[in-house]
């Protein structure tokens, strides 16, 4: 018979770790959504297997990202990752962004266990909210969702 209605389901730790509140917040209220008036670089990333889409527009001034906008559709992980990414790239140089991408990719490929360096509350945390995406590592199939905006960002930067 059907499960009784209104029962409280306990969310397992892994799921809780994946769907942290900060991720759900960025998914529901994506930052820097839309288009730039004058984009200097644009790239579109598609995950053909699952259909996630991200389009990134950048405004650049003397090698510094001065504006960023994102459009797209897809799962909470890809869209939250894109939203969080826009918050950390503004004001950064290409080299700094390269470092961020390396750090992000490193975070995605860490072995099980939490790196104490990656704590969103830690003062000076470079990845900021993005560190909440650590939970994704436990779901290898979803890593490509989290990485899509970053790969697209690199593509946009290399197009200029």
């Amino acid at each position: 018979m059907a499960a009784p209605h209104g029962t409280v389901t306990v969310v397992t730790m892994a799921l809780e770790d994946l769907y942290r509140e900060v991720i759900l917040d960025h998914y529901r209220n994506p930052r820097n959504r839309g288009h730039l008036e004058h984009a200097d670089a644009t790239a579109q990333g598609v995950n053909p297997l699952c259909g996630d889409e991200v389009t990134i527009e950048l405004e650049l001034s003397d090698g510094v990202v001065t504006g960023v906008a994102v459009e797209g559709q897809g799962c909470s992980i890809s869209q939250a990752s894109a939203s969080m990414m826009t918050e950390v790239v503004k004001g950064k140089t290409r080299a700094q962004i390269g470092d961020l991408v390396a750090k992000f990719r490193g975070m995605m490929s860490l072995e099980d266990g939490v790196d104490p360096e990656l704590d969103p509350e830690r003062p000076g945390s470079v990845l900021g909210d993005l560190e909440a995406l650590q939970g994704v590592r436990q779901y290898p199939v979803r890593i490509k969702c989290a990485s899509l905006p970053w790969n697209t960002l690199m593509e946009a930067l290399s197009s200029t």
Binding site: L15, C50, C75, R142, C145
Partner: peptide, 22 residues
């Protein structure tokens, strides 16, 4: 408000295998 991939991931935690996507 919930994407199909997220549904599939959450269902998988309960050992329910469904397809998600197009």
């Amino acid at each position: 408000g919930t994407h199909a991939h997220d549904l599939a991931t959450i269902l998988d935690e309960g050992d329910v295998a469904v397809r998600s996507g197009h």
